[in-house]
Design a binder for these strands. Structure first.
Lengths: 239, 239
DNA sequence: TTAGAATATGTTGTCGACAATTCACCCGTT
DNA sequence: AACGGGTGAATTGTCGACAACATATTCTAA
């Protein structure tokens, strides 16, 4: 009944939150870009695979020009790597790559929490606290499959709360899809379900208190823990 | 004899350092992109101006497809804003926009300094110290026109020293050109010449001591000072 | 047999033309 | 005179074809 794949829920939650940020695709190049990105992130197109323009144009039923534009945008997102006169390949996934991404997340989301403590409206903070309450109930009922969507939504709201356009764009358009891609393809499950809730709670509290220093510090620690968690999983898989 | 325009020296120094990072343009779309970006950053194309594809294609003597690709890449850099079926405009410059960029610089370059303290080789650190010595001599001789190139070079080396690919790309391809564009078009001079040297010296010292915490903190303060400096200049201009 | 050059093939880069959309102008109606 | 709808010019989006480049294969010569 409720055993829907977590991915679906996650995407729903994301799109819900992001309606204030991302505009719906209008041109076919837009749609193709979103489709291609999704197919890569979710593993339909394998990591390291070559992206042949002619092949993709027949597959997606569009001209080579729109495929080229889509690939260009994927390159800007660092999802594919391109060499002139040779072609584009999906980026190679490595443990170091994922950990490097978390270094940036630590830096950027820490700043986002700091700015959120400064710039979020009281109403937005109230919504954030309400979100946390609903998470608490989910966790209490053991509905851990909601956790990833909830975690993503939590972070999204804080990032949006920073009110810094560049910060928002870097995280949403750049980092998050890459992280998801790495997680899916390296076979990582969702985030830690047990301990994360308390960390979220403390972060929200710091934001509500307008304590910029503490909000940043707690967010950085939160992501550092996440990073260590991933590193442990990866090393245990490899050994 | 040595009274060459500072801009020229700045670019020379940048390209010298960046040879390890950026590859030379090969296709005409590449060249057009670099040309267009330079023309926008240096104010040849005004802020807020509309970028007509047909007009640019005749101006630069290339086809519209090439111009489109260049504009797409400029959009990814947040140098132009695009609306579907309408066109692209150079971004509107605002005081808040520049200050928002410095918030990101603080976050990202702080992390870069932290990672540099961890990942730079002893040889690279020695080069960095040597660079600082040459700056000191320049400052002592009052050759302040070298300062901007020197400042840029200093930051570049530390960013490269982080060894984090995404971090490097975000700063070099994304932030720095935007900052330069804002500075040029808002009529800001180069960075602070007097106090910055000591700050640089302390940062290098922290990196040489492999003190990650301190390196990050000093770099963040360094950029915060710079940001405050800019804010003061801007408000004094406006009033 | 091997190294190197010439060639063949398939890919990407570039171009001009056509289709779709937007925006401004003009006309008609109230 | 003011507002709404319609028409037209101009711009962007999309397409198929050609040119340039990289790579694999084959052929030749030492």
């Amino acid at each position: 009944m409720k055993a829907i794949l977590s991915t679906t829920n996650c995407l729903t939650a994301i799109t819900f939150t992001m309606t204030r940020y991302s505009q719906t695709p209008v041109t076919t190049a837009d749609k193709t870009f979103y489709q291609l990105r999704q197919d890569i992130v979710e593993g339909v197109i394998a990591a390291g695979a070559k992206l042949s323009e002619t092949e993709l144009s027949t597959t997606y039923g569009v001209s080579r020009a729109v495929i080229r534009e889509a690939i260009n945008r994927l390159e800007s997102c660092h999802i594919v790597e391109r060499r002139a006169n040779v072609g584009a390949r999906v980026v190679a996934l490595s443990e170091e790559g994922l950990l490097a991404l978390y270094e940036i997340r630590e830096s950027l989301e820490g700043m986002a929490a700091r700015l959120a403590a400064k710039n979020m409206s009281d109403e937005e903070i109230a919504e954030l606290e309400a979100l946390l309450v609903s998470h608490f109930q989910d966790v209490k009922q053991g509905e851990s499959y909601y956790q990833e969507a909830g975690d993503v939504d939590f972070h999204y709201r804080i990032i949006l709360g920073s009110k810094n356009k560049h910060l928002i764009s870097m995280l949403f358009d750049g980092i998050y899809h890459l992280v998801r891609m790495y997680r899916v393809q390296l076979g990582m499950a969702g985030p830690r379900v047990t301990t994360a809730y308390d960390e979220h709670r403390h972060i929200v509290q710091a934001i509500a208190n307008r304590d910029q220093e503490l909000a940043e510090m707690l967010m950085r620690r939160h992501i550092t823990y996440s990073r260590n968690n991933i590193r442990n999983k990866l090393s245990s898989i490899q050994s």
